[in-house]
């Protein structure tokens, strides 16, 4: 884990020069949890593609990837955007198991989603040793602050109380979203990346999108943004 030797994966010779950067790429599993309609998919879409679209309810779970570059490491976020609908609750543990980061998202205009986020927190705490997962409380829909039902102080207080981080975002306007991802990246790397075996290294499989772009650019990032 300690060495930062460049790696040349088998079969990826074409791109070997992109691997000469002495930067490791680590996999981070991040899961978004929360009630239906709080904006998990919109946040995920912001994370992944920096777009906003009116989303329809997620079916099961959507998987997106996003690469975040830190000064001495590259983190490849594997984002699991779970469905908030109750019918999928029985399968949700499938998605949050082994997550390095968990985002508990609530809609700051709907108090019940804030309460629901606390239920998710209890659920997470049941299964995880503190320190193995970075849990972040996210109050979304900051653009609708005039209809706010949960104050910043309340969110912050809950976060302080339970040792979580806290941010208010707006997936619609994009406010605080990229900042949030950067902050999570730093926190995950500090807390988990330092541990022995905390984060596994990501190895590009030889098959991944070699031909995805029409022209081959040897200086392109070794990681694609989004799926």
């Amino acid at each position: 884990m300690g060495e930062t030797l460049p790696r040349v994966p088998k079969g990826a010779k074409l791109r070997s020069d992109t691997w000469s950067r002495p930067v490791r790429t680590l996999r981070v599993k991040m899961v978004l949890l929360g009630s239906s309609g709080v904006g998990k998919s919109s946040l995920a879409l912001r994370f992944g593609k920096d777009e906003f679209r009116t989303a329809s309810p997620t079916v099961g779970c959507a998987y997106l990837t996003r690469v975040v570059h830190l000064s001495d490491v590259t983190l490849r976020f594997e984002i699991w955007d779970t469905a908030g609908q109750e019918k999928y609750h029985s399968v949700t543990p499938l998605y949050y198991r082994g997550a390095h980061a968990a985002l508990l998202v609530y809609d700051l205009c709907k108090r019940e989603t804030f309460i629901r986020a606390q239920v998710w927190l209890k659920e997470l705490e049941k299964h995880y040793i503190p320190g193995s997962t970075v849990i972040w409380l996210v109050g979304n829909k900051g653009d609708l602050a005039q209809d706010r039902q949960v104050s910043v102080q309340e969110g912050q207080a809950l976060a302080n109380d339970r040792g979580l981080s806290f941010t208010e975002t707006s997936a619609l306007s994009g406010d605080q979203v990229s900042e949030l991802l950067q902050a999570i990246a730093h926190r995950v790397y500090e807390c988990i990346g330092a541990q022995q075996g905390g984060l596994s290294e990501w190895q590009e499989t030889p098959l991944v999108d070699l031909h995805r772009k029409g022209t081959f650019n040897p200086f392109a990032s070794c990681c694609k943004v989004g799926p």
Binding site: A55, S56, V59, G60, C61, A62, Y63, D81, Y88, Y95
Partner: peptide
Amino acid sequence: ASSAFQAGEIWTPI
């Protein structure tokens, strides 16, 4: 019926 599929890869029980 689900535009959500366009955002990423979906894994769902069915």
